[in-house]
Amino acid sequence: MSLISAENIQKDYKTGEVTVKALKGLSFEIEPASFVSFVGPSGSGKTTLLNLIGCLDKPTSGSLKVADTDVLHLDRKESASFRGNNIGFIFQDFNLLPVLTVYENIEYPLLMVQSVPASERNKRVNVLLEAVGMIEQRDKYPDQISGGQKQRVAVARALVTNPKLVLADEPTANLDHKTAYMVIDLMKKMRDEFKTTFIFSTHDQKIVGEAEIIYMLEDGELKGTDVKKGVGNA
């Protein structure tokens, strides 16, 4: 059964009198535990699509189901709750909270979103700190660690709630090549370990190659799909 099912989704933006069609009738399905990338030039609709899948925005038309939930009809509070329980986010600029330590940043969704008991929180955060290799830096603040380390913390934060899906919008854009590969490898490793679906957008052709399923976007349309050998059809 698909984790994400999109059918003819369109997204229009109004800029004054002009309507911009950001997405033009996209249909696709993504299976659980996939490692998927949306690629395309700037303005192709990658971020718009990730925002729709992540319930941060709603399509103008079409149908979109994420984890068996029709996300079109969720209100503001339900959307927040759905995101908190089903989706993890990794941002281009890491977006760690500067007043929280590495440990507290990872702990945040468990504490403030899911209200998980302390012992369980501690266990899950420590597992992820180990997994992303940040246990030594657990008490450091974001401004005391490097960009690559920040993104590792962001990966851990995205995974700590055991989401079905992690969305990463240009997760390597602010990292050097070596670190970018490390982060992608880490994401893959996490997918293997936690069976979480990872969807990331990128315009870096080398990074794209790391994805198992690649959706090519151009001008808001799906121009092609590339499925690596050994991976089920998307």
């Binding site: 995101r83 908190g84 969704p109 403030m112």
Partner: peptide, 13 residues
Amino acid sequence: REIGTIAAIGTLP
């Protein structure tokens, strides 16, 4: 941006 981040990861209004 911080507000956006915490809202995105599911913090209720």
